[in-house]
Design a binder for these strands. Sequence first.
DNA 1: TGACGGAATTGGAACGTTCCAATTATGAAA
DNA 2: TTTCATAATTGGAACGTTCCAATTCCGTCA
Lengths: 346, 346
Amino acid sequence: MVKERVTVIDIAHAAGVSKSTVSLVLQGSSLVNEATRAKVNAAIRDLGYVYNRGAANLRQSRSKIIGIVVNDLTNSFFAELAVGVDAVVQSAGFVQFLANTGEKIERQREVVASMREHGVSGLIVSPARGTEAADLAPLVESGIPVVLVVRDIAGAEVSSLISDNHAGAMAAVRHLIERGHQRIAFLGGFPDTAVFEARMRGYRDALIEAGMPVSDAMIIGSAPSRAGGVTAVEQAMMLADRPTAALCFNDAVAFGVCDGLRARRLEPGADFAVIGFDDVIEAKTAVPALTTVSVDPQGMGQRAAELLLKQIKAGKAEPEAIVGSVRLVVRQSCGGQVERKREALA
Amino acid sequence: MVKERVTVIDIAHAAGVSKSTVSLVLQGSSLVNEATRAKVNAAIRDLGYVYNRGAANLRQSRSKIIGIVVNDLTNSFFAELAVGVDAVVQSAGFVQFLANTGEKIERQREVVASMREHGVSGLIVSPARGTEAADLAPLVESGIPVVLVVRDIAGAEVSSLISDNHAGAMAAVRHLIERGHQRIAFLGGFPDTAVFEARMRGYRDALIEAGMPVSDAMIIGSAPSRAGGVTAVEQAMMLADRPTAALCFNDAVAFGVCDGLRARRLEPGADFAVIGFDDVIEAKTAVPALTTVSVDPQGMGQRAAELLLKQIKAGKAEPEAIVGSVRLVVRQSCGGQVERKREALA
DNA sequence: TGACGGAATTGGAACGTTCCAATTATGAAA
DNA sequence: TTTCATAATTGGAACGTTCCAATTCCGTCA
């Protein structure tokens, strides 16, 4: 019961035209007569023809495939990024190869190679930790458009779309200072990443701007996950001079920090101010709703995809470095004024 | 500066052999002499050759691509499912097309069609709400192996891998009954889905088994999301005869229920027992840690992928319906004995 | 009637690989 | 030396499409 593949030739036969005409119909060419177009379409339906995009790609040496490789799909930030990308590539008639590297450089190398072999027209990459410009060199030399998201790589000559981490962190810390906090920690994230670096610098610069002391003890790294947040806040609360507020590396860490606070019978928002980063979808519905720096992961995915498609269409465009603006979304987790809070506790 | 594509012919030239020999080398054939193999490999490296899998697929009429279509990638259950699939297909040398339908039947139709055109060797589908057997018919007729996950479709002659929702729900409710709860609600989920049906039936059957009354008022549907959980628990707490415990449709709903409880100054676990379903990755680290029916989404993705690969290898296997076993993971969110709890409150 | 021009259609080559059958090289046995 | 088997290599056809140049069709105009 093996199905013979139906090809343009079969259609041509059935419709009594040549394969070239069928091809024209498939491409929606205006050169073909209305009547024959109808005949051909009827034959296509009758025989259950399915277009072989692979064969077409081979002939035209271009494909309608883009690749997206992310470093951690279990992190909902990246999952949302992927759906943003998916939405725009789908409506442009493309389909996406998605691969998850789990932060493994080796796996990243493999999947990128595999995607090249499959002839993707472009690639959106959120690089694994430790990726270097050299890792991407063969890819960019081949002339395939690449858009880096979330994490930039120094020296890589490709477009990038990262959010303004420095400005976002500053805004968050300024907000905490305005509310009267004196001891503000920076919690979570791997210290050897560019994103950590940028957010942490924003944190420091806001403190310095306000003439406040910067203490390294207040900067506590961890895995950028919920579990990491728990351990980071535990460590912070061991300090002699405990913080009363924290800017967290990302929302996952922030949720973990909330968990850790509750485990010590402290209510996030009321007893300790926490601010996240990213504005993942759960931030709004959590209790307390998370104050966070909004990065809009889906929107970012969309913009990255649009940029990539533009470059694909243009043949090869100059690398663009876009830094996406970012805004502080104030919800409940950062509490009210510190003074008011003190009263409530007294 | 347009790059000419390097082909097997170029390699053959450079290495002083024929294209057939190069092809043999690429396929790792044992027919080729060690020395020539080395020469060819050197040429491949020197010229920066990249294999054109599309051309190979065309000739062999089989591809190393599988498709995975999910109904909601922003739900971390499905994101994890996708990484499970990804892990096994990657190590089998396949790559995955991933598409998100967002529960839209129309989009699902489009992406499935697109995947067929791209010649996927198999498909893993978590169908959108309302998908019918007829929607899949053309696909299965074409002989492409399909594995349905999470949601089964009556009458579709394809393999499926769903978890034992009925047994899981029963186990959870039995556990609550053992702990002394008398009024147990079932919260969240869309009532018109098969998964809802199965879990709700498990809930009812456990109550009946214990000789306890079943009240429709205690069964409250909602969107299967965190926000839905909040509204469902609000509604439940309006009841004259308030529940003291709930089995939730899934973990997202359960988190929402916890949020809603806290908004009313009730502590999940201590004041109200909540049990989730799925065991997503955050369930373990949340505070309180969520008692839940473990479905192991990554493991499920892996099993689905393995089943699919098996069928691809076998040409065409008989449809198998696997129901994955499921176990109750008791953590903190369902509290201790009700008696003890009452003492603590008194 | 013949020439012309635009619209519609067509055959064949090409894309980069694999597969098959055929060929050549190598060495051992007669 | 010839013969044979085995190992290694090879040319050409094929996969299903698109593209190009060429051809046919048909109505109009001189």
